[in-house]
């Protein structure tokens, strides 16, 4: 066998590494026969014609080594990145004493669910069932409200020609950069005058007025839909509302999904708003409850705090794992804060 043929075989072998692995698993005998001969030739070559072998394989070996080093660096750095999260997860399973004696270990001695059991009991006689229910309710309603209202507004901006459209659109975009602190105090005064303090209204009702980030994203999306669809429907006698509900809404599902994910995520993670507006511990959302639960002046059971922290992160993580593609797309295209 000439060197060229051998090189080609080797190249094929590298290229088809997946099929190679597959054939080794499913057709072991066949793979053995094929690769045994190939490998024997390669090894023979290295032993008896080292100079030729170096010329032929050197590049590939160096390439493979570089890839190996690259992946090793990326994985090592990635491990450092998620180390704290793994540590938190591990700590949530550690027993009372293990937390302090084996602080840095990433593998708990046993899967101890005591922390979860005692943590779930919560504080002041209110269990985390209440807090999770509260959070789910608030986040659920806010999500539906903000996505639906944003879609309506986005349709107006994307498809209807009206006086002052450009001006209002620019105003809307500029509000995205507004620090929320400026609105915080007057909004608080307004809501307290309306007697909304200690209710979920301040958390939910503002979401019914559309959110600029989502509106912007949906406008971009609607602009990508051919206007001929709207025109055809209009000729067929479809009203504006009909076009919106029957044509636009089904077509912008991906944008609706991305918005919904972010709306839920922001609402779930929100801390300042429930901190200001909710006084009654029974009405606390998970984030405020967790912060009170983890009050260093009263807590000694850190395992339970970690356990509840992990549970509070579960919905967010689930969203991330299930809809990673949409989230990545949303952030990449509009710069949404993740």
């Amino acid at each position: 066998m000439s060197n060229q043929t051998l090189a080609r075989v080797y190249r094929n072998y590298r290229k088809n590494i997946t099929s190679t692995i597959r054939s080794i698993i499913f057709y072991p005998m066949h793979a053995y026969r094929t690769y045994y001969h190939q490998m024997k030739r390669v090894i023979n070559n290295i032993i008896f014609h080292p100079a030729d072998a170096y010329r032929m394989y050197g590049k590939h070996v160096r390439h493979a080594m570089r890839g190996l080093v690259f992946h090793a660096i990326v994985i090592a750095f990635g491990f450092v990145m998620i180390y704290p999260l793994i540590w938190m997860l591990a700590s949530s399973f550690k027993g009372e004493s293990e937390i302090w004696t084996e602080t840095s270990s990433l593998i708990p001695n046993e899967l101890n669910l005591d922390n979860y059991r005692s943590g779930w009991k919560g504080f002041a006689g209110i269990s985390f069932t209440t807090f999770f229910k509260n959070s789910l309710w608030v986040s659920g309603v806010s999500t539906l409200a903000s996505v639906f209202s944003s879609a309506i507004v986005a349709y107006g901006f994307a498809r209807i020609r009206f006086t002052g459209k450009k001006f209002w659109f620019a105003v809307m975009l500029s509000t995205m950069m507004l620090p929320s602190q400026v609105q915080l105090i007057p909004q608080y005064i307004l809501f307290s005058k309306l007697d909304w303090i200690n209710s979920y209204k301040p958390l939910i009702i503002p979401r019914f007025f559309g959110m600029p980030f989502f509106i912007f994203m949906m406008v971009q999306f609607i602009r990508g839909i051919p206007i001929e669809l709207d025109e055809a429907a209009e000729i067929d006698g479809c009203s504006r509302a009909g076009i919106f509900f029957r044509i636009i809404l089904p077509l912008i599902k991906p944008a609706l999904g991305t918005s919904a994910i972010f709306a839920f995520y922001w609402s779930w993670d929100d801390f300042l708003t429930p901190l200001i507006y909710l006084n009654d511990p029974r009405k606390y959302t998970v984030s405020v409850a967790l912060r009170n639960f983890a009050d260093p002046s009263s807590v000694t059971n850190w395992g339970a705090v970690f356990a509840m922290g992990i549970l509070a992160l579960v919905p967010v993580f689930l969203l991330f794992i299930l809809f990673q593609r949409y989230m990545v797309e949303g952030i990449s295209t509009t710069g949404l804060k993740g």
Partner: peptide, 20 residues
């Protein structure tokens, strides 16, 4: 890799991670 590097940011704003 992208998911691993992005994971801290997805949970970063939460109280749980601040407490941690």
């Amino acid at each position: 890799y992208r998911a691993v590097y992005y994971a801290p940011s997805i949970v970063g704003g939460s109280i749980a991670v601040a407490v941690m």
